[in-house]
Design a binder for these strands. Structure first.
Lengths: 124, 124
DNA sequence: TGGCGTTATCTTTTATAAAAGATAACGAAA
DNA sequence: TTTCGTTATCTTTTATAAAAGATAACGCCA
């Protein structure tokens, strides 16, 4: 009877199966945990700059993500305005909210998978 | 009725759900696709150096991986010998083979998950 | 018109990881 | 004891990504 991974590895427990999930297009990933967090913070703050700051991401990178996302969707996911009442601002479209919701549920199903596999690893 | 991701994103098709899987210990991953490929090539070539070369990895990095793997398992996964008949050599233990087999099967189950989710994304 | 905070977009600097280079040690065999 | 190809382990260089810095533009409002 072959050993289970749990028997092969040191420190009987403390191991787990983990992973990352994303939507990719033509082999390169364009929607994953990072963009999701950014979008959520934009919804919360109404500003790309403030959102980026909250997650300790540079504004330039945040803006690049937004640009990519808008470029990949039929209609913009994010409406940006420079200048105006409070200097400008940013808001999400319904499509963006829908995409966030989709990814959240997808991730939840993935968590189940991971939890199940972690159990399986220990038992053998 | 809300849009499906497939409707939100451009180019109706060409998208897929993809991801990565690994075993982690105390938050840091230590066994994933890279180490697996390396072990397989070591089994094939009998040499860390040749294995590293085949997968275009530097010897130094390959050796660091081996060191970590051996350190994390109850018994060594890889038996290395410097000097000797042909200058030295490396071979895998039964535990290593078992771990490779485990990961391979795990990845296979993950592939099913991904394929299923990709379908689901399109349909909505 | 001038001020404000934001978006938009450069260029330059910094940090991090990967690779490369160099060299010693190993141990069997000729 | 010399040779060989490997392991073992430094230090140095290179490549890549991320961040930082700088500056213009935007458009409302006082």
């Amino acid at each position: 009877m072959p050993k289970s991974p749990g028997q092969i590895l040191k420190n009987k427990s403390g191991y787990k199966i983990n992973g990352s999930l994303w939507i990719e297009f033509k082999g390169l990933r364009f929607f994953g945990p990072g963009p999701v967090e950014l979008l959520l913070l934009i919804r919360e703050t109404g500003s790309i700059r403030q959102a980026a700051k909250k997650m300790e991401m540079s504004y330039q990178k945040a803006w690049a993500i937004i640009k990519t996302l808008n470029g990949q969707s039929s209609q913009p996911l994010v409406i940006v305005q420079s200048g105006g009442k409070k200097g400008g601002g940013t808001e999400l479209t319904a499509d963006a909210l829908e995409l966030i919701s989709y990814y959240t549920q997808l991730r939840k199903r993935f968590e189940s998978f991971l939890q199940n596999e972690t159990k399986r690893m220990g038992a053998g």
